[in-house]
Simulated assay, not measured.
Amino acid sequence: MKITLTINGTDITFEPTKLAYNTYINDITMNDKIAPATNFLRRTVLAEDKEKLNEILENHVGAALQIIEKVIKQYAPDLVIEVKN
Protein backbone atom coordinates (compact mmCIF):
# COMPACT_ATOMS: atom_id res chain seq x y z
CA MET A 1 0.00 0.00 0.00
CA LYS A 2 1.38 3.39 -0.99
CA ILE A 3 0.42 6.45 1.01
CA THR A 4 1.11 9.89 -0.45
CA LEU A 5 1.01 12.93 1.80
CA THR A 6 1.29 16.54 0.70
CA ILE A 7 3.46 18.22 3.33
CA ASN A 8 3.86 21.97 3.01
CA GLY A 9 3.07 21.65 -0.70
CA THR A 10 5.47 18.74 -1.30
CA ASP A 11 4.22 15.25 -2.17
CA ILE A 12 5.98 12.46 -0.30
CA THR A 13 5.05 8.81 -0.70
CA PHE A 14 5.48 6.08 1.88
CA GLU A 15 5.12 2.32 1.47
CA PRO A 16 4.69 0.88 4.96
CA THR A 17 4.97 -2.83 5.60
CA LYS A 18 3.82 -5.02 8.44
CA LEU A 19 7.45 -5.56 9.52
CA ALA A 20 8.17 -1.80 9.54
CA TYR A 21 4.94 -1.14 11.47
CA ASN A 22 5.64 -3.84 14.05
CA THR A 23 9.22 -2.67 14.49
CA TYR A 24 7.98 0.90 15.04
CA ILE A 25 5.45 -0.21 17.68
CA ASN A 26 8.03 -2.38 19.44
CA ASP A 27 10.62 0.43 19.47
CA ILE A 28 8.37 3.06 21.08
CA THR A 29 9.10 3.69 24.76
CA MET A 30 7.91 6.26 27.28
CA ASN A 31 11.17 8.13 26.81
CA ASP A 32 11.67 7.66 23.07
CA LYS A 33 9.00 8.36 20.49
CA ILE A 34 10.85 10.59 18.03
CA ALA A 35 13.62 8.18 16.98
CA PRO A 36 11.24 5.26 16.27
CA ALA A 37 8.94 7.58 14.29
CA THR A 38 11.84 9.01 12.30
CA ASN A 39 13.26 5.53 11.63
CA PHE A 40 9.87 4.25 10.45
CA LEU A 41 9.40 7.18 8.08
CA ARG A 42 12.91 6.84 6.65
CA ARG A 43 12.46 3.06 6.24
CA THR A 44 9.16 3.38 4.40
CA VAL A 45 9.58 6.52 2.26
CA LEU A 46 10.12 5.87 -1.44
CA ALA A 47 13.74 6.32 -2.52
CA GLU A 48 12.92 9.23 -4.80
CA ASP A 49 11.29 11.12 -1.88
CA LYS A 50 14.02 10.50 0.75
CA GLU A 51 15.71 13.86 0.25
CA LYS A 52 12.41 15.75 0.54
CA LEU A 53 11.52 13.87 3.74
CA ASN A 54 14.93 14.52 5.29
CA GLU A 55 14.64 18.23 4.56
CA ILE A 56 11.24 18.41 6.28
CA LEU A 57 12.42 16.38 9.27
CA GLU A 58 15.51 18.56 9.71
CA ASN A 59 13.74 21.91 9.34
CA HIS A 60 10.46 21.43 11.21
CA VAL A 61 10.28 20.64 14.91
CA GLY A 62 7.84 17.81 15.62
CA ALA A 63 7.49 16.87 11.96
CA ALA A 64 8.16 13.17 12.51
CA LEU A 65 5.26 12.77 14.92
CA GLN A 66 2.87 14.78 12.77
CA ILE A 67 3.75 12.81 9.65
CA ILE A 68 3.72 9.37 11.25
CA GLU A 69 0.28 10.05 12.72
CA LYS A 70 -1.13 10.50 9.20
CA VAL A 71 0.74 7.50 7.73
CA ILE A 72 -0.28 5.13 10.54
CA LYS A 73 -3.91 6.31 10.43
CA GLN A 74 -4.03 5.30 6.75
CA TYR A 75 -2.02 2.09 7.11
CA ALA A 76 -3.70 0.76 10.26
CA PRO A 77 -7.11 2.40 10.62
CA ASP A 78 -9.04 1.99 13.86
CA LEU A 79 -11.18 -1.13 14.20
CA VAL A 80 -14.78 -0.95 15.31
CA ILE A 81 -14.80 -3.06 18.48
CA GLU A 82 -17.82 -3.59 20.68
CA VAL A 83 -18.02 -5.40 23.98
CA LYS A 84 -21.09 -7.60 24.31
CA ASN A 85 -22.50 -8.82 27.59
Rank of each mutant, 00 (worst) to 15 (best):
M1L: 05
M1F: 01
I3E: 04
T4F: 00
L5A: 03
I7D: 10
I7E: 12
G9V: 02
D11V: 03
D11Q: 11
F14Q: 08
F14Y: 09
E15W: 00
E15L: 03
K18S: 14
L19S: 10
A20I: 01
T23F: 05
T23Y: 07
Y24M: 10
Y24H: 13
I25C: 08
N26S: 15
D27S: 15
D27C: 05
I28F: 04
T29V: 04
T29L: 05
T29R: 04
D32V: 05
K33C: 06
K33H: 08
A35M: 13
A35G: 04
P36A: 15
A37N: 01
R42C: 11
T44R: 04
E48Q: 12
K50N: 09
E51F: 09
K52P: 00
L53I: 01
L53R: 07
N54G: 13
N54Y: 08
E55V: 11
I56M: 12
N59P: 01
V61E: 15
L65K: 04
I67A: 06
I67F: 06
E69T: 05
E69G: 09
K70C: 06
K70D: 14
V71F: 08
V71K: 07
K73H: 08
Q74D: 10
Q74W: 02
Y75E: 09
D78V: 12
D78R: 11
L79V: 11
L79I: 13
E82A: 12
V83E: 14
V83R: 12
V83G: 09
K84P: 00
K84C: 03
